[in-house]
């Protein structure tokens, strides 16, 4: 059952059509927030478990075969990675210093912040399974494209 492309009649007939009082707004928002809370707590627990189980040093050994391989590995690694983007910057800087190509490092940086395999269950639960899967697959491909385009543009400008 798809959403009609023509403009919908204003609102859905629920109480949200008119403006709510602060109290009612807080109750309704609290209810929605409570639904998301176990997902957020679960995500935090999962992230801390994965970052503890997978040591950072072991990831760097995956690189070094050739550029295309490195780009693919970097994009997948970034997709699986969790944690603050700063960790991605540090890892990317170390890889660059060890001779990994800028394209691969860029793919890692981009997929780190755009693709979230670990966050996928949370995204699917709150925004829909199809939305989450298609978006993340699309972002994985885009990470590679952005990496090549960024480095290509820099070479062109230089």
């Amino acid at each position: 059952m798809g959403r009609p492309s023509a403009p919908r009649p204003a609102g859905d007939g629920s109480a949200t059509e008119g403006r709510l009082s602060w109290r009612t707004s807080a109750v309704r928002a609290g209810r929605g927030f409570a639904t998301a809370l176990p997902i957020v707590i679960g995500m935090l627990l999962l992230t801390s478990l994965l970052t503890t189980l997978v040591p950072q040093g072991s990831l760097e050994r995956l690189f070094g075969r050739d550029e295309v391989w490195d780009v693919i590995v970097a994009a997948i690694l970034g997709s699986l990675a969790t944690g603050h983007p700063l960790v991605g910057y540090v890892l990317a800087g170390e890889l660059l210093a060890r001779g990994v190509s800028l394209v691969a490092v860029t793919a890692l940086l981009v997929s780190w912040v755009t693709v979230g395999v670990v966050q996928l269950p949370a995204e699917a639960l709150l925004l829909g399974r199809r939305f989450a899967i298609v978006r993340n697959l699309c972002c994985l491909v885009f990470a590679v494209a952005v990496a090549y385009l960024t480095v290509g543009t820099l070479r062109l400008v230089a």
Partner: peptide
Amino acid sequence: VLALMIVSERFITPR
């Protein structure tokens, strides 16, 4: 996020 959700409920109608 909770604050934004409350503001959203208060001021941002579906319309």
